[in-house]
Nucleic acid binder design. Structure first.
Lengths: 342, 342
DNA sequence: TTGGTAATTGCAACCGATTTCATAAGTTTG
DNA sequence: CAAACTTATGAAATCGGTTGCAATTACCAA
């Protein structure tokens, strides 16, 4: 166990003061080039590593970004994480990650931990049952940027990164209509979450714009889990007249629903066409392959971190009060293709 | 932007010295109960939060665990992360996560970052092409525990957490044999990685123990990606005599291989039985559902963090030099079921 | 030679909590 | 009643960088 080398050790080594060593290592302009050179060399040679605590303590910056995510082991969320990690590492930031397990309670606890860890900024995708965002108030009060992605909340001091869920759902529904569906079911998540509420909206608008009636009875709300997909299939089978299209707000749920429908003897897409949401890898493997909305998770993660870091590094008057909308697109596969594509 | 409350502020508030405040907040036994009570109250009331840098600086502990993972957005790895996060948060530790993208180069860089971040301990699953683990030497030298999981390396100063890959592969292969397969292909990953090397071993032993020949030509090595699965299917179709069983070291690859085989007119499991590895959610959705080895990722994450924290908290002479083996089991589904189960 | 400016460098305070050692008050014991 | 502990508290040093301000040196023009 070697002892750590400090700037004092280096100072002794080169015959300069710790001040100069510190400045040299931070590439401060007021230090002579030759001096810097020499200090760099000795520092490397001695195996110096900066003590981040001391530095953080003094600078009141941590170079750490907190992430609160509903659940880590989902295809979408882990893609987001991957994108975040990439950009953060490149920019010299660390990521500390915690999951709310989808409950507001844990989210509150996590927010507190992040606050105590003094993250420089926070990235949040809200839990299912988060009713208000008071637990982020301490951040706002101290001017620590909070950036919401995917499952966002409105707040005058924070940026949101989203896709246009209304439009995406509109596209998905319109596609089904164009394929000849007239009786389209929508399986949605908790409508308190903006994401699902907006998709429902898009679904509704598409129907209306194509002169189809919007019927409450065709909207199934659940938690979009595996079993929920199967249950939804049962409900669909009981509906009269039998629906001829299903737009599900989540691929995993869609796939399970589709499977249950198939087992009940329904032919897909012939009897019922199905469209999912997310472009989970699973969509390419199931049979028939699932039409879905490509939700760019990886990119969202990248953008989220980049925006946050831009703000932190500028620390200027750049307002972060806005919304960034990423492009999403419909990917047509077998599960909805009843006609040849134009 | 309120200013932060420090123990000095509290000290002034209660009329005790900062020393006593510090001790009270750390529940030091030498402080009077009533005093503690009072200090707690005032601290809460003033909205105090401990400054971790100051504390870390002094204690030389970060309460942070570093994780280096090949890639975040995989079903298995994100389950592991989820398990890790849970235990770490409960124990008051933060997790900082970085991905090596499967390359040794990034792994080296990440290790350096982690070292500079002064994590209390490190959890690592090695990259594909990591040839040696010299980049962890600084940790070993300073006595910072490094714990490998899944993709492990031998080192006298570190613990490994694994499943018995030999046994698991043995079970999988034996199962295929029991289902009547006599000509079994094994699709494996990079054999430099212990995980894949051991699975190959298990496959081989099972064949030998059942008096079947082991043939190099039946072992396909690739990167277990989606396309690799499809390519492997092509190879299998060209083999003569046609194999009647396939054991794949990864579900995702297996599923794609299976799909390609089906498209070529092969009936599964009748013509070829397939077994995967990991118990990815995808296995339950594909048709036929995929027989696989349940690899307890979430549990592995929990165990990894728990072991590490036990060591850190004890900081005693407990040796961490050992291997923890988790249970894994064969889950039989349709893709391999040619006979009724006993 | 002198005044003045620019370029370097260092002193010392500071960030906020922890901890060693000393001290004071209260208790017990012989 | 004094010696010997206990118990509770505080002063001050410490962790390792960072930074405002002062000091020193170098360089140049007048």
């Amino acid at each position: 166990m070697d002892k750590d080398i400090t700037i004092y050790d280096i100072a002794k080594g080169v015959g300069f003061s710790p001040t100069t060593v510190s400045r040299a290592l931070n590439n401060h302009p007021a230090v002579n080039q030759k001096t810097k050179q020499r200090i760099y060399e000795i520092a490397t040679q001695m195996g110096y590593r900066s003590n981040m605590f001391a530095s953080n303590l003094r600078r009141q910056r941590t170079h750490t970004i907190g992430v609160i995510v509903p659940i880590l082991n989902s295809s979408f969320q882990s893609s987001v994480m991957a994108g975040m990690e990439k950009v953060a590492t490149e920019a010299g930031y660390n990521l500390i990650i915690s999951q709310s397990m989808g409950t507001a309670e844990k989210e509150v606890a996590n927010a507190k931990t992040m606050f105590n860890s003094r993250v420089d900024g926070l990235l949040v995708s809200l839990a299912h049952d988060t009713e208000n965002i008071d637990h982020f108030e301490p951040f706002f009060k101290k001017g620590i940027p909070v950036l919401f992605y995917d499952r966002v909340a409105e707040h005058k001091q924070s940026t949101s990164i989203v896709i246009d869920n209304v439009q995406a759902a509109y596209k998905a529904t319109t596609h089904l209509i164009e394929q000849g569906c007239r009786n389209i079911v929508h399986i949605s998540g908790n409508l308190k979450i903006n994401v699902y509420a907006n998709r429902l909206k898009g679904y509704k608008y598409a129907l209306i714009d194509h002169n189809l009636p919007f019927r409450e009875s065709l909207v199934i709300t659940n938690n979009l889990t595996e079993e929920d997909g199967i249950k939804a299939a049962e409900q669909i089978l009981k509906m009269k007249p039998r629906p001829d299209g299903v737009f599900v707000s989540n691929d995993f749920c869609a796939v399970n629903c589709m499977k249950a429908l198939k087992q009940a003897g329904i032919s897909i897409p012939h009897d019922i066409a199905v469209v999912g949401f997310n472009n989970d890898p699973i969509t390419r493997v199931v049979e028939p392959s699932l039409t879905t909305i490509d939700y760019p998770g990886y990119e969202m993660g990248e953008v989220a971190v980049r925006s946050l870091i831009n703000y932190l590094d500028a620390l200027s008057d750049i307002s972060i009060t806005n919304t960034i909308t990423l492009r999403s697109e419909l990917i047509v596969r077998e599960s909805s293709l009843r006609k040849l594509q134009k």
